[in-house]
Write a protein that binds this DNA or RNA. Sequence first.
DNA 1: CTAAACTTTGCAATGGCATTGCACTCCTTA
DNA 2: TAAGGAGTGCAATGCCATTGCAAAGTTTAG
Lengths: 136, 136
Amino acid sequence: MKDVIENKLKLRSVKPTAMRLLVLQCLMEQNRALSLNELEALFENADKSTIFRTLKTFQENYLVHRINDGSGAIKYALCDDDCICSLEDNHIHFLCTKCEKTYCLKDTPITTPNLPNGFRANFANYLIEGICSTCT
Amino acid sequence: MKDVIENKLKLRSVKPTAMRLLVLQCLMEQNRALSLNELEALFENADKSTIFRTLKTFQENYLVHRINDGSGAIKYALCDDDCICSLEDNHIHFLCTKCEKTYCLKDTPITTPNLPNGFRANFANYLIEGICSTCT
DNA sequence: CTAAACTTTGCAATGGCATTGCACTCCTTA
DNA sequence: TAAGGAGTGCAATGCCATTGCAAAGTTTAG
Ligand SMILES: [Mn+2]
Ligand SMILES: [Mn+2]
Ligand SMILES: [Zn+2]
Ligand SMILES: [Zn+2]
């Protein structure tokens, strides 16, 4: 288990510090997107800015992607191993308005529409709000 | 011109105060989504909280919809006259990363994907980032 | 092995934006 | 004409993201 986590870091050339291992493990265990505050709450004695910088490092090295779900706080979720956060890697995110949890719907790829003339797309953030399967 | 604006308000049963007429006119003239700060800057001597409450009233009466474009500030844009801000009224928004302007792509309706079992959609926010036609 | 150089962490600000309390003004109505 | 209600301005407040700085930990050259 710890090996899997360390490998994920090594794969992206990120040095495995204690904090990084913990945060990465957390993100792997929860299969959903977490906010900075949610992550902080899961640890008790870790500083928020350290977690913030951990996530920033992760993000810069394609270990996580950030999700703007309109909840006021940015959510972070694990990237796939081959993710480079390109337009092709973007996928739909779902925010349940009941349990307030945000999920990556990686099996539901984003279909980029035909844009008006002269518009070019680099990144897509497709967020669907509704009721999730456990809250139905 | 002023008639058109007043009619828009009457259509939604919103009393036409001076501020409301001004804000609505502003939103009609710019054909794009504006943030609270952008609107405030366009007026000089209007209070931000008044504009905020004006937009809130507009939003509650389907005169404007709010757009989360990840820029840090919520953007507001005019609704169509028959809009009730339902899932069917949701449309794609485009943020140009060069000029920082956000546009409603009302001609580019959102295709709601098939969600996993048990997930139900109520609202969609589909944001595309890229370069707009005037910045190309 | 040891000291300098670099990285990571913790703590305490800072800054931006949304939102609200309160008093004042303005408008409507009995 | 006075009372009630709606709209406005100003000044807070709160939340979240982000950063400066110094301490602690790690790596590397000598
Ligand atoms: Mn995701
Ligand atoms: Mn729009
Ligand atoms: Zn749920
Ligand atoms: Zn542009």
